[in-house]
Design a protein around this nucleic acid. Structure first.
Lengths: 339, 339
DNA sequence: GTGAAAGCGCTAACAG
DNA sequence: CTGTTAGCGCTTTCAC
């Protein structure tokens, strides 16, 4: 692999001239520029971005910290986050380093391994008290959150307004006459780790029902159809008068619908489902699910843009964004049967 | 940020001693080692991996080249590829740089931007003649394919045996008495780009039917439920005697099932579906789909391991792996009605 | 055992 | 407009 000094020698110019010819950061005579370009072509020159990064202290690489606790499963529709973030990064000339390791207590992983490698970071699966926040602050790595902590002073984030989402769902169901509603939440693991949206959804669910003078059950469910089936069965057994579910977790809907049908319950006549999913996923099942449409793509893009703006030095504004997506009514929900 | 020479000065030792104390590549007196460690702690030292990489010419970063042509959609179940690759990378001490830009004709993207940044690459969405293969060879970047080209001499890959998958599906359907079968393939875009598995599935589909003295239709379908619905409708209109589909594309099944039901066709009584999907996705719909179980996770892991082994200098063997996953019969298929 | 010093390949002053 | 040179922070050879 030829280096800049090879080019310089061959073109008969100074090393810096080659550098400037590439970056355009200072005027170069046409003649010199031609000779440099020529030499590059002849030698098949490829700039070494590692060396450049070391000299400039900028790598043009962002890290996506996306702990994947549940090995074996894909990310489900959440992969839309990844694609949109990758897309946005590319559009702005950044590469994306995907980090799925859980960054555990000895949160050294990142600190040790990739110090200097990234210009900034995007955090996902944010916990209410997230150790990564402190770690990144200490390392002076700029970052944004997709999701949010309990205390968000001084942080930039974009998140779904889960309070709003649950409020909307519950209002809709209660208006339809439903009085016995259950929340099928994300997995136990995520709840225990106090991942923001898992905790928030749960609290908002109960708060909203209470506002209506009602009481609900919530339960955690692993992201697979088997778990969905079993969760539904056990819920129906305990509370036969349930008439609606709010769904938070992907990959379960198949099992849930099957369980209901096995119990002889027709959707939406006997039972209503409202999901907080992306339209894609909501339309994949039969019947298609009424849902608060989770704007993965937009959130990913916004989070990335915020970070990149931050890197450019400009203050990010607004630094905190809460999205309130609309409820789209599909075939899985309707009024409760008067009984 | 303190550097090694800060540590050296503070500990009263030579720069190289600090380096060796960290790497252990040569014996250091206990006393010196203690002073170095102490100084590191006091100053909060973090080694700069960029500088290390420049000096050693190894970054411990792999690139995942995963062109996402279809903006706006997630990767669907294919995200399992990403998670398994990320996981495997982490397990072996590598980071993963995700590159979703299409690497177009002027395939410069990678060459320009990340020369030197990665130790090796994993290619996905491999086309029969894939320009990336030549580009990487030229740049002397070690790589493996998930998928394969037409000509694979000297390449390492792991791929699903789509010939086998289609053969299995068709044999099963034909044995059940189905004589009019259609293939719902991936999007037009992917077919036009001659992505290996899209082309291979199509060819294998027709070849297998021919072997049975039958003829089939195939058609490309975008990855959303609307497209699935429309494709089904138009197929049924043209060929009312169709009694089975083979499905290749995620995110469409909802629409397909809905269309069949709108046509008054009961699954599996009147119509059979066989998919080439991961179990997750196959079990998400209603009824659950009979499928050749696409082993995303295993493929991702194998591809990554092959690459890492290659980086270690050892020859990879076997360098080419074709997986033949079993057919799992679920609720979406059965014998054809005698008519 | 330890130190001094020469790179790794590039950028960006500084000096014409 | 162009050349010279001092870093960026680390690894590794060479010398003691």
């Amino acid at each position: 692999m030829p280096t800049m000094s090879d080019i310089a020698r061959r073109a008969g110019v100074a090393l810096s001239t080659v550098s400037y010819a590439l970056s355009g950061k200072r005027p170069i005579s046409d003649e010199a520029k031609q000779r440099v370009l020529q030499a590059m072509k002849e030698l098949g020159y490829q700039p070494n971005s590692l060396a450049r990064a070391l000299a400039t202290r900028r790598t043009s690489i962002l890290a996506l910290l996306y702990p994947a606790w549940k090995s074996g499963t894909g990310l489900g529709p959440q992969s839309e986050f990844i694609t949109s973030i990758a897309e946005a990064s590319t559009d702005h000339g950044y590469g994306l380093l995907l980090w799925t390791a859980p960054m555990s207590e000895e949160q050294g992983v990142m600190e040790m391994t990739h110090q200097g490698f990234i210009d900034g970071a995007i955090l996902m699966e944010v916990a209410l008290e997230d150790p990564r926040v402190e770690a990144l602050k200490r390392q002076m790595v700029p970052f944004t959150l997709i999701g949010r902590c309990r205390e968000n002073e001084g942080l930039s984030y974009v998140d779904l307004d889960f309070d709003y989402a649950l409020e909307t769902s519950i209002n809709y169901l209660v208006a339809g006459g439903h009085r016995h509603i259950a929340l099928i939440n994300q997995s136990q693991t995520l709840l225990q780790r106090k991942i923001g949206y898992v905790v928030r959804s749960r609290e908002a669910f109960h708060r909203e029902l209470q506002r209506h003078g009602l009481q609900g059950v919530d339960l955690c469910c692993e992201a697979n159809e088997q778990a969905g089936y079993e969760a539904t069965m056990s819920l129906l057994e305990q509370q036969p008068d349930l008439s609606a579910f709010v769904l938070m977790t992907p990959w379960t809907s198949g099992g849930i619908i099957r369980a209901l049908s096995d119990q002889g319950l027709l959707i939406p006549r006997d039972f209503s489902l409202v999901a907080i999913f992306s339209p894609h996923l909501a339309e994949m099942t039969n019947p298609a699910l009424t849902s608060v449409d989770f704007p993965f793509h937009e959130m990913g893009r916004l989070g990335t843009q915020m970070l990149i703006q931050k890197l450019s030095g400009a203050p990010v504004e607004p630094p905190q964004i809460l999205l309130k997506p609309p409820l789209t009514i599909r075939a899985s929900s309707g009024p409760a049967i008067k009984s």
